[in-house]
Nucleic acid binder design. Structure first.
Lengths: 163, 163
DNA sequence: AGCAAAATATTTCAATTCAAAACTTTCTTG
DNA sequence: CAAGAAAGTTTTGAATTGAAATATTTTGCT
Protein backbone atom coordinates (compact mmCIF):
# COMPACT_ATOMS: atom_id res chain seq x y z
CA UNK A 1 0.00 0.00 0.00
CA UNK A 2 1.79 3.09 -1.12
CA UNK A 3 2.12 5.76 -3.71
CA UNK A 4 -0.61 4.50 -5.99
CA UNK A 5 -3.24 5.03 -3.36
CA UNK A 6 -4.62 8.47 -3.98
CA UNK A 7 -5.48 10.24 -0.79
CA UNK A 8 -8.75 12.14 -0.89
CA UNK A 9 -8.79 15.88 -1.13
CA UNK A 10 -9.10 17.81 2.10
CA UNK A 11 -12.35 19.59 2.68
CA UNK A 12 -14.29 17.42 0.30
CA UNK A 13 -18.04 17.38 0.75
CA UNK A 14 -19.05 14.07 2.21
CA UNK A 15 -22.32 14.02 0.28
CA UNK A 16 -20.77 13.96 -3.16
CA UNK A 17 -17.50 12.04 -3.21
CA UNK A 18 -17.43 12.23 -6.97
CA UNK A 19 -13.77 11.55 -7.45
CA UNK A 20 -13.83 8.58 -5.14
CA UNK A 21 -16.71 7.19 -7.13
CA UNK A 22 -14.79 7.75 -10.34
CA UNK A 23 -11.85 5.92 -8.88
CA UNK A 24 -14.00 3.01 -7.86
CA UNK A 25 -15.66 2.72 -11.25
CA UNK A 26 -12.29 2.98 -12.89
CA UNK A 27 -10.85 0.23 -10.73
CA UNK A 28 -13.76 -2.05 -11.40
CA UNK A 29 -13.29 -1.60 -15.12
CA UNK A 30 -9.62 -2.41 -14.71
CA UNK A 31 -10.50 -5.58 -12.86
CA UNK A 32 -12.85 -6.59 -15.61
CA UNK A 33 -10.32 -5.92 -18.32
CA UNK A 34 -7.64 -7.82 -16.47
CA UNK A 35 -10.03 -10.76 -16.35
CA UNK A 36 -10.83 -10.51 -20.03
CA UNK A 37 -7.23 -10.35 -21.08
CA UNK A 38 -6.46 -13.25 -18.83
CA UNK A 39 -9.11 -15.51 -20.24
CA UNK A 40 -7.95 -14.86 -23.80
CA UNK A 41 -4.41 -15.70 -22.84
CA UNK A 42 -5.57 -18.83 -21.03
CA UNK A 43 -7.55 -19.95 -24.03
CA UNK A 44 -4.60 -19.46 -26.33
CA UNK A 45 -2.28 -21.49 -24.15
CA UNK A 46 -4.58 -24.19 -22.81
CA UNK A 47 -7.54 -24.26 -25.18
CA UNK A 48 -9.88 -23.58 -22.30
CA UNK A 49 -11.36 -20.26 -21.26
CA UNK A 50 -11.84 -19.04 -17.71
CA UNK A 51 -15.58 -19.65 -17.82
CA UNK A 52 -15.03 -23.17 -19.06
CA UNK A 53 -12.38 -23.81 -16.44
CA UNK A 54 -14.67 -22.57 -13.69
CA UNK A 55 -17.30 -24.95 -14.93
CA UNK A 56 -14.89 -27.88 -14.93
CA UNK A 57 -13.69 -27.07 -11.44
CA UNK A 58 -17.24 -26.83 -10.15
CA UNK A 59 -17.96 -30.28 -11.55
CA UNK A 60 -14.75 -31.64 -10.11
CA UNK A 61 -15.51 -30.29 -6.66
CA UNK A 62 -19.21 -31.15 -6.57
CA UNK A 63 -19.61 -34.11 -8.91
CA UNK A 64 -22.11 -34.29 -11.74
CA UNK A 65 -24.52 -31.38 -11.73
CA UNK A 66 -27.46 -30.06 -13.74
CA UNK A 67 -27.00 -26.79 -15.58
CA UNK A 68 -29.03 -24.82 -13.07
CA UNK A 69 -26.69 -25.81 -10.26
CA UNK A 70 -23.61 -24.98 -12.27
CA UNK A 71 -25.15 -21.60 -12.98
CA UNK A 72 -25.46 -20.87 -9.28
CA UNK A 73 -21.95 -22.03 -8.49
CA UNK A 74 -20.20 -20.06 -11.20
CA UNK A 75 -22.64 -17.15 -10.90
CA UNK A 76 -24.01 -16.97 -14.37
CA UNK A 77 -27.50 -17.38 -15.81
CA UNK A 78 -28.36 -20.84 -16.96
CA UNK A 79 -28.71 -19.89 -20.60
CA UNK A 80 -25.04 -18.98 -20.40
CA UNK A 81 -24.19 -22.38 -19.01
CA UNK A 82 -25.69 -24.03 -22.06
CA UNK A 83 -23.12 -22.43 -24.33
CA UNK A 84 -20.22 -23.19 -22.04
CA UNK A 85 -21.22 -26.82 -21.73
CA UNK A 86 -21.71 -27.05 -25.48
CA UNK A 87 -18.11 -26.10 -26.03
CA UNK A 88 -16.81 -28.36 -23.28
CA UNK A 89 -18.79 -31.21 -24.78
CA UNK A 90 -17.33 -30.56 -28.22
CA UNK A 91 -13.88 -30.90 -26.71
CA UNK A 92 -14.86 -34.12 -25.00
CA UNK A 93 -14.37 -32.75 -21.51
CA UNK A 94 -17.94 -33.27 -20.25
CA UNK A 95 -21.00 -35.26 -21.27
CA UNK A 96 -24.70 -34.62 -20.82
CA UNK A 97 -26.59 -37.53 -19.32
CA UNK A 98 -30.31 -37.78 -18.61
CA UNK A 99 -30.16 -40.06 -15.63
CA UNK A 100 -32.44 -38.38 -13.14
CA UNK A 101 -35.91 -39.68 -12.31
CA UNK A 102 -37.07 -36.17 -13.13
CA UNK A 103 -36.66 -36.27 -16.86
CA UNK A 104 -36.38 -32.51 -17.16
CA UNK A 105 -32.96 -32.43 -15.58
CA UNK A 106 -29.86 -33.15 -17.60
CA UNK A 107 -26.80 -33.90 -15.57
CA UNK A 108 -23.43 -32.79 -16.76
CA UNK A 109 -20.51 -34.94 -15.79
CA UNK A 110 -16.78 -34.87 -16.36
CA UNK A 111 -15.25 -37.26 -18.81
CA UNK A 112 -11.90 -38.82 -18.00
CA UNK A 113 -10.19 -36.09 -19.98
CA UNK A 114 -12.21 -33.45 -18.16
CA UNK A 115 -11.32 -34.90 -14.79
CA UNK A 116 -7.63 -34.93 -15.65
CA UNK A 117 -7.77 -31.36 -16.84
CA UNK A 118 -9.55 -30.27 -13.67
CA UNK A 119 -7.03 -32.09 -11.49
CA UNK A 120 -3.83 -30.58 -12.73
CA UNK A 121 -5.72 -27.53 -13.78
CA UNK A 122 -4.02 -24.85 -15.82
CA UNK A 123 -3.61 -21.83 -13.61
CA UNK A 124 -7.02 -20.23 -13.24
CA UNK A 125 -7.39 -16.58 -12.54
CA UNK A 126 -7.03 -17.47 -8.90
CA UNK A 127 -3.36 -18.28 -9.23
CA UNK A 128 -2.53 -14.77 -10.26
CA UNK A 129 -4.30 -13.43 -7.24
CA UNK A 130 -2.67 -15.95 -4.96
CA UNK A 131 0.73 -14.90 -6.21
CA UNK A 132 -0.09 -11.26 -5.77
CA UNK A 133 -1.49 -11.73 -2.31
CA UNK A 134 1.63 -13.48 -1.11
CA UNK A 135 3.51 -10.23 -1.24
CA UNK A 136 0.94 -8.34 0.81
CA UNK A 137 0.63 -8.27 4.58
CA UNK A 138 -2.40 -10.09 5.89
CA UNK A 139 -4.03 -6.87 7.00
CA UNK A 140 -4.04 -5.61 3.45
CA UNK A 141 -5.55 -8.84 2.19
CA UNK A 142 -8.36 -8.56 4.69
CA UNK A 143 -8.91 -4.98 3.70
CA UNK A 144 -9.34 -5.99 0.11
CA UNK A 145 -11.84 -8.66 1.04
CA UNK A 146 -13.83 -6.34 3.23
CA UNK A 147 -13.82 -3.56 0.71
CA UNK A 148 -15.13 -5.87 -1.96
CA UNK A 149 -17.68 -7.27 0.43
CA UNK A 150 -19.05 -3.84 1.15
CA UNK A 151 -19.14 -2.97 -2.51
CA UNK A 152 -20.92 -6.08 -3.70
CA UNK A 153 -23.32 -6.03 -0.81
CA UNK A 154 -24.14 -2.46 -1.70
CA UNK A 155 -24.68 -3.20 -5.37
CA UNK A 156 -26.85 -6.18 -4.67
CA UNK A 157 -29.06 -4.28 -2.25
CA UNK A 158 -29.39 -1.67 -4.96
CA UNK A 159 -30.30 -4.38 -7.43
CA UNK A 160 -33.19 -5.45 -5.28
CA UNK A 161 -34.48 -1.93 -4.95
CA UNK A 162 -34.84 -1.64 -8.68
CA UNK A 163 -37.14 -4.63 -9.09
CA UNK B 1 -19.73 -3.20 7.68
CA UNK B 2 -21.21 -6.06 9.58
CA UNK B 3 -22.46 -9.59 9.40
CA UNK B 4 -21.73 -10.15 5.76
CA UNK B 5 -18.02 -9.76 6.28
CA UNK B 6 -16.71 -13.24 6.83
CA UNK B 7 -13.93 -13.31 9.36
CA UNK B 8 -11.02 -15.53 8.43
CA UNK B 9 -10.46 -18.82 10.18
CA UNK B 10 -8.11 -18.81 13.15
CA UNK B 11 -4.78 -20.52 12.69
CA UNK B 12 -4.84 -20.20 8.96
CA UNK B 13 -1.52 -20.51 7.20
CA UNK B 14 -0.50 -17.12 5.92
CA UNK B 15 1.21 -18.57 2.85
CA UNK B 16 -1.96 -20.09 1.39
CA UNK B 17 -5.00 -17.91 2.14
CA UNK B 18 -7.10 -20.03 -0.17
CA UNK B 19 -10.47 -19.09 1.23
CA UNK B 20 -9.64 -15.40 1.11
CA UNK B 21 -8.69 -15.80 -2.51
CA UNK B 22 -11.94 -17.62 -3.15
CA UNK B 23 -13.83 -14.80 -1.55
CA UNK B 24 -12.06 -12.22 -3.66
CA UNK B 25 -12.67 -14.07 -6.90
CA UNK B 26 -16.27 -14.56 -5.90
CA UNK B 27 -16.71 -10.87 -5.16
CA UNK B 28 -15.16 -9.85 -8.44
CA UNK B 29 -17.54 -12.11 -10.30
CA UNK B 30 -20.43 -10.54 -8.38
CA UNK B 31 -19.26 -7.10 -9.39
CA UNK B 32 -19.08 -8.16 -12.99
CA UNK B 33 -22.52 -9.67 -12.95
CA UNK B 34 -23.99 -6.62 -11.26
CA UNK B 35 -22.53 -4.57 -14.07
CA UNK B 36 -23.94 -6.87 -16.72
CA UNK B 37 -27.40 -6.87 -15.26
CA UNK B 38 -27.26 -3.12 -14.94
CA UNK B 39 -26.32 -2.51 -18.54
CA UNK B 40 -29.18 -4.70 -19.78
CA UNK B 41 -31.62 -2.80 -17.61
CA UNK B 42 -30.21 0.51 -18.80
CA UNK B 43 -30.53 -0.52 -22.40
CA UNK B 44 -34.12 -1.57 -21.93
CA UNK B 45 -35.10 1.72 -20.32
CA UNK B 46 -32.98 4.22 -22.22
CA UNK B 47 -31.95 2.44 -25.42
CA UNK B 48 -28.31 2.95 -24.54
CA UNK B 49 -25.93 0.46 -22.96
CA UNK B 50 -23.32 1.23 -20.33
CA UNK B 51 -20.47 0.98 -22.82
CA UNK B 52 -22.25 3.35 -25.16
CA UNK B 53 -23.01 5.75 -22.35
CA UNK B 54 -19.40 5.75 -21.24
CA UNK B 55 -18.40 6.58 -24.78
CA UNK B 56 -20.88 9.46 -24.96
CA UNK B 57 -19.73 10.84 -21.64
CA UNK B 58 -16.08 10.67 -22.71
CA UNK B 59 -16.94 12.66 -25.82
CA UNK B 60 -18.94 15.15 -23.80
CA UNK B 61 -16.14 15.71 -21.33
CA UNK B 62 -13.26 15.78 -23.82
CA UNK B 63 -14.79 16.94 -27.08
CA UNK B 64 -14.42 15.14 -30.40
CA UNK B 65 -11.94 12.28 -30.20
CA UNK B 66 -10.48 9.60 -32.44
CA UNK B 67 -11.27 5.98 -31.65
CA UNK B 68 -7.88 5.30 -30.15
CA UNK B 69 -8.37 8.04 -27.57
CA UNK B 70 -11.82 6.83 -26.68
CA UNK B 71 -10.38 3.37 -26.20
CA UNK B 72 -7.90 4.67 -23.65
CA UNK B 73 -10.51 6.69 -21.78
CA UNK B 74 -13.08 3.95 -21.46
CA UNK B 75 -10.46 1.24 -21.14
CA UNK B 76 -11.27 -1.12 -23.97
CA UNK B 77 -9.35 -2.12 -27.07
CA UNK B 78 -9.93 -0.02 -30.12
CA UNK B 79 -11.54 -2.80 -32.09
CA UNK B 80 -14.22 -2.72 -29.42
CA UNK B 81 -14.70 0.99 -29.88
CA UNK B 82 -15.49 0.48 -33.54
CA UNK B 83 -18.58 -1.55 -32.69
CA UNK B 84 -19.75 0.81 -30.00
CA UNK B 85 -19.41 3.81 -32.28
CA UNK B 86 -21.19 1.93 -35.07
CA UNK B 87 -24.24 1.52 -32.86
CA UNK B 88 -24.14 5.08 -31.59
CA UNK B 89 -23.89 6.29 -35.16
CA UNK B 90 -26.91 4.21 -36.19
CA UNK B 91 -28.89 5.93 -33.45
CA UNK B 92 -27.72 9.33 -34.62
CA UNK B 93 -25.88 10.13 -31.40
CA UNK B 94 -22.41 10.54 -32.91
CA UNK B 95 -20.87 11.10 -36.33
CA UNK B 96 -17.52 10.14 -37.81
CA UNK B 97 -15.68 13.01 -39.46
CA UNK B 98 -12.35 12.92 -41.23
CA UNK B 99 -11.20 16.41 -40.46
CA UNK B 100 -7.64 15.92 -39.31
CA UNK B 101 -4.63 16.81 -41.46
CA UNK B 102 -3.55 13.24 -40.77
CA UNK B 103 -6.02 11.42 -42.93
CA UNK B 104 -5.72 8.21 -40.95
CA UNK B 105 -7.53 9.61 -37.96
CA UNK B 106 -11.29 9.68 -37.89
CA UNK B 107 -12.74 11.94 -35.27
CA UNK B 108 -15.93 11.00 -33.54
CA UNK B 109 -18.12 13.83 -32.39
CA UNK B 110 -21.42 14.14 -30.62
CA UNK B 111 -24.48 15.13 -32.58
CA UNK B 112 -26.97 17.47 -31.01
CA UNK B 113 -28.99 14.49 -29.84
CA UNK B 114 -25.88 12.87 -28.44
CA UNK B 115 -24.93 16.03 -26.57
CA UNK B 116 -28.38 16.27 -25.04
CA UNK B 117 -28.32 12.67 -23.98
CA UNK B 118 -24.88 13.10 -22.41
CA UNK B 119 -26.01 16.22 -20.57
CA UNK B 120 -29.01 14.90 -18.76
CA UNK B 121 -27.53 11.46 -18.88
CA UNK B 122 -29.56 8.50 -17.76
CA UNK B 123 -28.05 7.27 -14.52
CA UNK B 124 -24.82 5.50 -15.40
CA UNK B 125 -23.49 2.78 -13.18
CA UNK B 126 -21.90 5.54 -11.14
CA UNK B 127 -25.20 6.70 -9.74
CA UNK B 128 -25.84 3.40 -8.10
CA UNK B 129 -22.48 3.51 -6.43
CA UNK B 130 -22.97 7.11 -5.37
CA UNK B 131 -26.24 6.19 -3.72
CA UNK B 132 -24.69 3.24 -1.99
CA UNK B 133 -21.70 5.19 -0.79
CA UNK B 134 -23.88 7.83 0.82
CA UNK B 135 -24.92 5.37 3.47
CA UNK B 136 -21.36 4.41 4.35
CA UNK B 137 -19.00 6.23 6.66
CA UNK B 138 -16.14 7.92 4.87
CA UNK B 139 -13.62 5.51 6.32
CA UNK B 140 -15.38 2.62 4.68
CA UNK B 141 -15.40 4.39 1.35
CA UNK B 142 -11.69 4.95 1.54
CA UNK B 143 -11.16 1.36 2.47
CA UNK B 144 -13.00 0.27 -0.63
CA UNK B 145 -10.92 2.54 -2.82
CA UNK B 146 -7.67 1.40 -1.31
CA UNK B 147 -8.62 -2.25 -1.48
CA UNK B 148 -9.44 -1.94 -5.14
CA UNK B 149 -6.30 0.03 -5.77
CA UNK B 150 -4.18 -2.70 -4.26
CA UNK B 151 -5.99 -5.35 -6.21
CA UNK B 152 -5.78 -3.70 -9.59
CA UNK B 153 -2.22 -2.63 -9.07
CA UNK B 154 -1.41 -6.22 -8.25
CA UNK B 155 -3.15 -7.63 -11.29
CA UNK B 156 -1.57 -5.15 -13.63
CA UNK B 157 1.89 -5.82 -12.35
CA UNK B 158 1.14 -9.48 -12.92
CA UNK B 159 -0.02 -8.68 -16.40
CA UNK B 160 3.32 -7.16 -17.24
CA UNK B 161 5.20 -10.17 -15.96
CA UNK B 162 3.43 -12.37 -18.45
CA UNK B 163 4.47 -10.44 -21.51
C1' DA C 1 12.47 9.31 -54.43
C1' DG C 2 11.51 4.83 -52.66
C1' DC C 3 10.62 1.44 -49.49
C1' DA C 4 10.08 -0.42 -44.93
C1' DA C 5 8.03 0.43 -40.59
C1' DA C 6 4.69 2.52 -37.69
C1' DA C 7 0.18 4.34 -36.73
C1' DT C 8 -4.92 4.36 -37.24
C1' DA C 9 -9.12 2.28 -38.07
C1' DT C 10 -11.74 -1.51 -39.44
C1' DT C 11 -13.07 -6.39 -40.41
C1' DT C 12 -13.49 -10.99 -39.06
C1' DC C 13 -13.93 -14.45 -35.71
C1' DA C 14 -15.00 -16.74 -31.48
C1' DA C 15 -16.50 -16.56 -26.65
C1' DT C 16 -19.34 -14.66 -23.03
C1' DT C 17 -23.36 -12.81 -21.22
C1' DC C 18 -28.27 -11.98 -20.47
C1' DA C 19 -33.31 -11.54 -21.66
C1' DA C 20 -37.12 -13.42 -23.73
C1' DA C 21 -39.38 -16.99 -25.83
C1' DA C 22 -39.99 -21.90 -26.71
C1' DC C 23 -40.11 -26.68 -25.37
C1' DT C 24 -40.59 -30.63 -22.39
C1' DT C 25 -41.73 -32.55 -18.10
C1' DT C 26 -43.60 -32.29 -13.51
C1' DC C 27 -46.58 -30.48 -10.08
C1' DT C 28 -50.86 -28.31 -8.38
C1' DT C 29 -55.41 -27.27 -8.10
C1' DG C 30 -60.07 -27.37 -8.96
C1' DC D 1 -58.46 -36.48 -14.07
C1' DA D 2 -57.74 -32.27 -16.78
C1' DA D 3 -56.03 -27.56 -17.18
C1' DG D 4 -52.68 -24.65 -16.15
C1' DA D 5 -48.76 -23.14 -13.43
C1' DA D 6 -44.02 -24.14 -12.44
C1' DA D 7 -39.41 -26.00 -13.27
C1' DG D 8 -35.41 -27.19 -16.17
C1' DT D 9 -33.15 -26.63 -20.36
C1' DT D 10 -32.36 -24.80 -24.73
C1' DT D 11 -32.85 -21.48 -28.62
C1' DT D 12 -32.57 -17.00 -30.49
C1' DG D 13 -30.99 -12.43 -30.72
C1' DA D 14 -28.17 -8.51 -29.46
C1' DA D 15 -24.13 -6.39 -27.27
C1' DT D 16 -19.47 -6.56 -25.58
C1' DT D 17 -14.88 -7.93 -25.74
C1' DG D 18 -10.17 -8.83 -27.57
C1' DA D 19 -6.89 -11.14 -30.99
C1' DA D 20 -5.45 -11.37 -35.45
C1' DA D 21 -5.52 -9.95 -40.02
C1' DT D 22 -6.34 -6.23 -43.37
C1' DA D 23 -6.34 -1.61 -45.44
C1' DT D 24 -4.91 3.05 -45.58
C1' DT D 25 -1.92 6.69 -44.53
C1' DT D 26 2.11 8.69 -42.62
C1' DT D 27 6.84 8.71 -41.24
C1' DG D 28 11.59 7.61 -41.28
C1' DC D 29 15.64 6.10 -43.32
C1' DT D 30 18.72 5.30 -46.91
Amino acid sequence: MSNYVQTPVQGQTPEAPQDLVKQIVHQIRRLMQAGELYTKELNKKYWVTAAQLNCLIALYEHGALPASQIAKLIMVKSSTVTGIVDRLELKGLVTRVRNSPDRRVINIELTEAGRKLAENAPPPIQQRIVDGLKSLPKNDVEQIVQGLNMLTHMLEVQDLQVE
